[in-house]
């Protein structure tokens, strides 16, 4: 994975890791995504902002193929996932780590086994190695001591961090994280931001982070995308968004409150 990644990084430095082309999605009569076209650059951190209920999570779900668009196409690298058969989709998903907004831990197995699960499924690592790596992933999110706990006994913020450790279990090329700092205190939240930033720098991981936490968005973002009523109404650097023509975007950027 790393070899292939570094191989074409030079050749196609500007290649998009993810592309959405004219993606629309409605639930019943309610249009959530309305003709969204996007390029997410490889190896960068893209932060997605927008009010609650505007379709940020729905957009992430399209990227891993958990939802299919009513119209439009979704590409991960060169693969158009909207047309892939199940086996091809599974291959793409192995390259993506996904942190669900509610963490979605498997509640019948321990936290450590949650993190070990993708490794047990998709690598030939021995049991000892899997345990060691799962332990290291949990330590990275500050959960070493909760490894043997069941998910049901964790706090919301702990669950979120365990979900992040699971999303990072296979050292994915692409990491999609839905509100990593929701429910976290400012210090822990800062540590998670550092972990994400470090992952991007050290591994060249492409990051998409949905967040309501503006300080953390500023710290992480190479690019920001602002979704509103199913459309991208602003995109660019932190500066660009601060000077956006949309009052809503400027108001968002001015708020310092963590979310």
């Amino acid at each position: 994975m790393t070899a292939a990644g570094s191989g074409d990084r030079g050749a196609t430095a500007a290649a998009a890791a993810i592309r959405l082309e004219g993606v629309s999605k409605a639930f019943g009569a309610f249009r959530v995504l309305d003709d969204v076209t996007l390029r997410i650059p490889r190896g960068q951190a893209t932060v997605v902002l927008g009010r609650s209920g505007t379709g940020k999570s729905v957009m992430l779900r399209h990227i891993v193929g958990l939802l299919r668009p009513d119209a439009g196409r979704v590409f991960v690298g060169d693969d158009e996932i909207t047309g892939l058969p199940p086996a091809g989709l599974a291959a793409v998903r192995r390259r993506i780590g996904f942190l669900f907004q509610n963490a979605a831990l498997f509640d019948s197995i321990t936290v450590a086994e949650n993190v070990a699960f993708p490794m047990r499924r998709h690598t030939a690592l021995s049991d000892v190695e899997v345990r060691a790596r799962a332990g290291a992933k949990l330590a990275a999110v500050g959960l070493a001591r909760a490894a043997e706990s069941m998910p049901g006994s964790l706090s919301g913020g702990m669950r979120k961090r365990a979900g992040l450790a699971r999303a990072m279990a296979l050292d994915p090329e692409i990491l999609l994280v839905d509100e990593p700092s929701a429910g976290l205190d400012p210090v822990t939240s800062g540590e998670i931001d550092d972990l994400l930033a470090r992952t991007r720098e050290e591994r060249g991981t492409t990051l998409i982070v949905v967040t309501h936490n503006i300080p953390s968005a500023r710290r992480l973002a190479d690019t920001m995308i602002f979704l509103h009523e199913g459309r991208v109404i602003a995109r660019g650097s932190v500066d660009d968004l601060e000077r956006s023509g949309h009052g809503l975007v400027r108001r968002f950027m001015r708020s310092e409150a963590g979310g």
Binding site: R61, V64, G65, L66, P86, A90, A91, R93, R94, I96, F98, F100, N102, A104, L105, F106, D107, F117, P118, R121, H122, R166
Partner: peptide
């Protein structure tokens, strides 16, 4: 309802 089935799919498990 807790999205664990989606989570399985997301880690490329059928």
């Amino acid at each position: 309802v807790t999205e664990q089935i989606d989570a399985l799919e997301a880690v490329a498990v059928d």
